[in-house]
């Protein structure tokens, strides 16, 4: 395999040649991170598992444990500038620490196996491993100690806090232990939500084009395209309401269930759209009915999917929410489609 550009040297220790990683990003790292945020090649964005060196570590240097999703690994190494330490990268199949810990790939088994495989006990004199706190759902610290002789210390949630954590004698402050979900944290997660709806959105566009073709007959292509675009606006708004604005405004939207929050924003968009395009509602009541039935559940469904990206939803909560919301979404959208069929597409 070709040596990746972020490997800048080697550190020789007890007969091993450990690759030394850069703490800087190059253009490929920046681009790669950006692409992954949009879901492009995200499932294959991985680094080779194994032991890596940062700076000039010795047998007495600390050992950090990480996942092999390259976005995570890059964020970690970027914060370690000026430090001398080891990074043990586990094979999490290119998945981030939190999700991999949930699946168990960032887990006791893999950690114990990787310690043995790289011969960590011969490299370092200490018997302490610093794990990201969010890896804890997959790793049983007491079992790791029993099976490998290494004691697990859970470090901060965020890689950026690691230098401070090390300076403080491997002590994490309460702020380092808490997960956050601020405006920026939510915003940066929306591209992958939007990329996820691209395929169904294109199918929808195809259907709208077909309906326009049937209604308008054989008019010039640009006119056909324009008419389709106009018909797509209400749907595009519903998609943005659910996959972009609900995540962004999450704590400010009343209620607790994500499906409810998305439905509210979807309804607000529908009313706004109807008011803007069709102020004399009683006349176009079929159109109003169609959009009121069809658009809010789209936003609701997409908002519900954001539970997976959030940092505070429980399995029991999401199951409860889905049991109530999913049937309602299907019924509402189904009735909307019924209106569309009964009016032979005229209500669009």
């Amino acid at each position: 395999m070709r040596t990746p550009p972020w490997i800048v040297g080697e550190v020789a220790i007890s007969g091993l040649r450990v690759p030394q990683v850069s703490t800087r990003w190059n253009q490929a790292d920046i681009l790669g991170s950006f692409k992954a945020r949009w879901g492009w090649g995200r499932m294959r964005y991985a680094v080779e598992p194994g032991l890596y060196a940062v700076g000039r570590p010795t047998a007495a240097s600390p050992v950090l444990v990480s996942a092999n999703y390259k976005v995570s690994f890059d964020r970690l190494r970027k914060t370690l500038s000026g430090l001398d330490l080891w990074i043990l990268v586990l094979d999490t199949k290119g998945i981030n620490v939190w999700c991999a810990a949930g699946k168990g790939t960032f887990g006791t088994e893999e950690l114990v196996g990787r310690i043995a495989q790289v011969g960590l006990a011969d490299v370092v004199s200490g018997r302490i491993l610093i794990l990201p706190q969010l890896g804890a759902p997959g790793v049983a610290a007491h079992e790791v100690l029993e099976r490998s002789g290494f004691r697990v210390v859970y470090g901060p949630v965020r890689a950026a806090d690691i230098p401070e954590f090390l300076r403080a004698g491997q002590k994490a402050t309460p702020a380092m232990r808490a997960v956050r979900f601020g405006l920026w944290d939510r915003l940066i997660l929306t591209p992958v939500e939007l990329a996820g709806v691209l395929k169904p959105a294109l199918i929808l566009l195809g259907i709208l084009f077909g309906l326009t073709l049937v209604r308008e007959g054989f008019v010039p292509f640009p006119i056909l395209l324009g008419a389709t675009a106009v018909k797509a606006i209400p749907f595009l708004g519903a998609i943005l309401a659910g996959a972009f604005f609900t995540p962004l405004l999450l704590p400010f939207i009343p209620g607790r269930a994500f499906a409810w929050k998305g439905w509210l924003l979807g309804l607000a968009w529908t009313l706004l759209y109807l008011q803007g395009t069709n102020p004399l509602w009683p006349e176009g009541w079929k159109t109003a009915l169609l959009y009121l039935l069809l658009l809010p559940p789209i936003a609701s469904f997409l908002a519900m999917n954001f539970t997976g990206a959030s940092t505070f939803t429980s399995l029991s909560g999401v199951v409860k929410e889905m049991k109530i919301a999913l049937p309602l979404q299907i019924i509402s959208a189904g009735l909307g489609i019924l209106v569309l069929i009964l009016t032979l597409g005229a209500a669009l």
Partner: peptide, 9 residues
């Protein structure tokens, strides 16, 4: 224990 993720569920 589990993931609170509607998609996965």
């Amino acid at each position: 224990a589990g993931v609170g993720c509607a998609y996965a569920i």
